[in-house]
Design a binder for these strands. Structure first.
Lengths: 136, 136, 136, 136
DNA sequence: GTGGTCTAGACCACC
DNA sequence: GTGGTCTAGACCACG
């Protein structure tokens, strides 16, 4: 199975962290279904051109979050995530990001109306990428 | 002079980063006026209960951004920030945060309408803290 | 012949280990009598929905413990277990578990009386499952 | 600070696991007080004669359990554990061990009375090591 | 000095 | 084949 992960070499964000958050999004959003057998750590590492250990860490962390389940000698699977649980995950992730953005607006004394305007513009641009935009 | 900085000991965010971003906001938003003499490194560090090295780094970083100006033997001052420049700073900070939030929404397959609804709710809550809310 | 084995897919305990310890218990406690012909490796593996390699390992391990005996071309039988031997087995298994439990209590600075109270409660619950309890 | 950890080289139990469980016990039982600065990973690794990475993993795992808190550039501390929380931890650890022991007794068809007698004997021996016993 | 990340490579246990 | 553990050693970020 092929997992679409984009690594940004120039980012300060640790490799394993980039992989983790993207894989987490794929699972939470349901783009990778429960029960799916993920690539072996070696295979995945090869594809990402990184160390086996980095991938192992990703699998391990996500397992401790309850998103993955690994069976020695067999492989690593996407765990069953209850709908309610998934909804909570999504909600939290999104709310957290929005709150943080509004906080920054506040800290910089941005007007409520201006913030709203900016947000709506960005929202529209991202969700209707008529031209080229659509991914950051 | 007293600078209102809140440090979160339990955050994963590095100390120096917390101080930097808050001080930057204070300057950009005009809450600390240009020409103001900031506390000495030692004094500031004492107030924040952190290392002088940390404060020194903050002053250096913000100086290299052009927000501060250090005069040997005198102290560190808030530099003159042109209105256009300030506007750019603010705009960038806010836009960046909003874009990042929307991206997360996208990555988790959040509906445009839901995202908008959530944002407006948070916006209102933060800007009209009737009860107690208002700062994170 | 049908062997009542419960596999816990989500346990960290290796499959072969789960099968081994349960089968061992069945033999030692006399619930499977000596001379009994066990299912073939394939059949057993099919019933447990696991690999034949796993069952093969179980049979081998228990044979090397003297609990099973394999006759080429015929099958695997439960060996004769002397009463004294069986008693030793049981005693060891139980004592080991109890000692380990008490050690954990000690390591966590649990009072002797509290430990005793807890034990008796659990003992009663497990041996007199009035409601539903009785197995973990 | 010196941490009393006993490593069993011959055990099948992974190194990091041995260290983790012992350190966890020390914290939960209150033998290491909250706020205590633990040895640096290098120092600890030197003392245990193991790799830095192994110690780091221990600290990381216990941090994710909420028992430790590490600050980059500063060190690793024992986190504040609420009394209720600590009680839960202890209770769970002990109950789990006892339940498992009783289950083994059951699986081997040990009489309730016999199990009780064995337990009380072991309990007394461990908590009143008149002769030599007292640790496993 | 501290912890944080990442590497390459080894060996073992499991299926 | 799979994952699990452990090593030695490097380099970076933080205080």
């Amino acid at each position: 199975m092929w997992i679409p992960i984009q690594l940004n070499e120039n980012s300060a964000e640790p490799l394993y962290h980039q992989v983790e958050s993207q894989l987490r999004s794929l699972i939470i959003s349901g783009q990778i279904k429960e029960g799916t057998l993920l690539p072996s750590i070696r295979e995945f590492a090869g594809g990402l051109n990184c160390s086996v250990i980095t991938v192992r860490r990703v699998y391990q962390d996500l397992e401790s979050e309850g998103l993955l389940r690994t069976k020695q000698g067999t492989g690593t699977f996407v765990a069953k995530v209850g709908d309610a649980e998934r909804e909570t995950f999504r909600r939290e992730a999104v709310e957290e990001a929005l709150i943080s953005a509004v906080d920054i607006g506040l800290s910089v004394k941005c007007e409520e109306e201006e913030l709203k305007r900016l947000f709506l513009a960005i929202l529209h641009r991202k969700y209707h990428p008529d031209g080229k935009e659509g991914e950051a």
